[in-house]
Computed example of a mutant assay.
Amino acid sequence: MFKIMIVEDDLKIAQIVKENLIKWSFDVKVVEDFSDVLSVFSEYKPHLILMDINLPLYDGFYWCSQIRKLSKVPIIFISSRNTNMDIIMAINMGGDDFINKPFSIDVLVAKINAVLRRTYSYMDVESDIVEYKDVFLNIKDNCILYKGRQIELTRNEFKIIYILMKNAGSVVSREKIMRSLWEDESFVDDNTLTVNINRLRKKLEEIGIEGFIKTKKGQGYVIL
């Protein structure tokens, strides 16, 4: 079942759209906290997003650009702002289609189905994002996004943060991390892992992520 995420300022409209899409066998999530759209996106893992332009706090263009740093999930803009400039901006920011308000539900469903066919006839529908406490790890691009700031990671840095974020809240031993990096830790100088961890911490601090990776003496590392 395809999952649709609705980011719409008018919750009455969002609810009407949701009820109609459910009739077409879509799973639907309406965003209600407009300050935390990325977290909802990461948790829900939608296959398509319906995005209004006029939103509280940040507009739809902003959220589209933030999501595009993490994912190529299709985004259809729905808005009463229908000047040529608005449509051009929507497409340039990464939107896949644009629908003017007011709109027909039948037209909306037709456009949704068309975009889904184009997108998922050749793409994997699984999410490429791991998220913990507003830190987003893009698996495909080996990069970290935090509060609009982004850094690229080396292969080893990515593997370290990936295994720690997948096991967030649990201590991961140095041996397990080294096996994930080099398969057989007996051929690796123990200091090599320490160097990689320290380099990773410095990169995280550069974009404001302080104290993300904790050391558990004699045990390993943990993200809390």
Rank of each mutant, 00 (worst) to 15 (best):
V171L: 08
K176V: 09
D97V: 10
M123P: 01
D128N: 09
I99Y: 15
T215W: 03
D97L: 10
A90K: 02
P56D: 01
K216D: 14
S25I: 07
I91M: 01
I160T: 03
M178W: 06
V195S: 04
L145A: 07
S39C: 13
S121H: 07
D184C: 05
S39Y: 13
E152H: 13
I67G: 05
F2K: 08
N142R: 14
L164A: 03
A14V: 04
F158E: 11
V125A: 14
K216R: 14
S186F: 12
F103W: 02
I197W: 03
L11K: 08
G211V: 08
I76V: 11
N84F: 15
S121W: 07
E8W: 07
I177A: 04
M89D: 06
L70T: 00
V107M: 12
I112H: 05
K23Y: 07
I161P: 02
V109Y: 01
N100M: 14
G220S: 05
G218M: 03
V28Y: 09
M123E: 11
E175Y: 15
A114C: 05
Y221N: 06
V28L: 11
S180Q: 15
F212V: 01
N138V: 00
D141M: 04
T192V: 14
R174I: 13
K18E: 13
Y221A: 02
V135I: 09
L137T: 10
L181C: 03
I13V: 14
R68S: 00
K72W: 09
V7R: 00
E205Q: 10
N100Q: 14
L145T: 08
F34V: 08
T192L: 14
V125L: 15
R81Y: 14
L55G: 05
I22K: 11
N84D: 15
L50Y: 04
I4H: 03
L224A: 12
D52H: 01
S121E: 04
V188N: 06
T194D: 14
K3A: 05
Y44H: 10
D36S: 12
V31R: 05
K111G: 02
L108N: 02
L21K: 04
N198R: 15
M51V: 10
I99Q: 15
S121C: 05
Y122P: 10
Y122Q: 13
L145N: 09
F61G: 00
N196R: 11
N196D: 15
S65M: 04
F103V: 03
E32H: 15
K166Q: 12
D96V: 06
T154V: 04
N100E: 09
I207N: 03
V115P: 01
F212S: 09
Y58R: 15
N54W: 14
G220V: 02
I88K: 13
K18A: 09
S71T: 01
M178H: 06
N198E: 11
I197E: 01
K69M: 11
N100W: 07
V17S: 04
M123F: 08
E126L: 11
I160N: 02
I213G: 10
G220H: 05
H47L: 07
E183G: 09
R118N: 12
N191D: 13
D97P: 12
D96Y: 14
I22E: 14
A114E: 07
G148H: 00
F61T: 00
K166N: 09
K101M: 15
Y120E: 05
Q15L: 15
T119D: 10
I177F: 05
W24L: 12
P46Y: 02
E152W: 13
I223V: 06
